[in-house]
């Protein structure tokens, strides 16, 4: 499941910010470090939730997330 969510997150990152190489979206990466600004990051999270058909309480996104923790968070609700 996590592999599928990671793949979905990669596709979404590239959709929102086409300049990013999907292979850079690895578990230890942070979206900001890859070049996603705050609005890009909000778009990415929103699109992944839509694709998964889940609504995660926004409070869960507080703090500093890397790709691994985002995938874990999506997985917990998917």
């Amino acid at each position: 499941m996590d592999a599928e969510i990671l793949a979905l997150l990669r596709r979404t990152v590239v959709t929102v910010v086409p300049e990013i190489d999907a292979t850079e979206v690895v578990p230890d990466a942070r979206l900001a470090d890859l070049g996603c600004n705050s609005i890009d990051r909000a778009d990415i999270v929103t699109l992944v939730m839509e694709e998964l058909g889940v609504q995660i309480p926004v409070g869960e996104f507080g703090g500093d997330h890397d790709v691994r923790s985002l995938v874990g968070l999506f997985g917990a609700y998917a």
């Binding site: 909000a42 929103t46 926004v58 996104f61 507080g62």
Partner: peptide, 26 residues
């Protein structure tokens, strides 16, 4: 209830910008 941006003291504005943006969108 969400803790996205805050002014907990007279001399401090703080917050989590990603969380605030997501909360605004939602």
């Amino acid at each position: 209830e969400v803790m996205d941006t805050l002014r907990p003291r007279a001399d401090l504005e703080a917050g989590d910008s990603d969380l605030s943006l997501l909360s605004y969108l939602h």
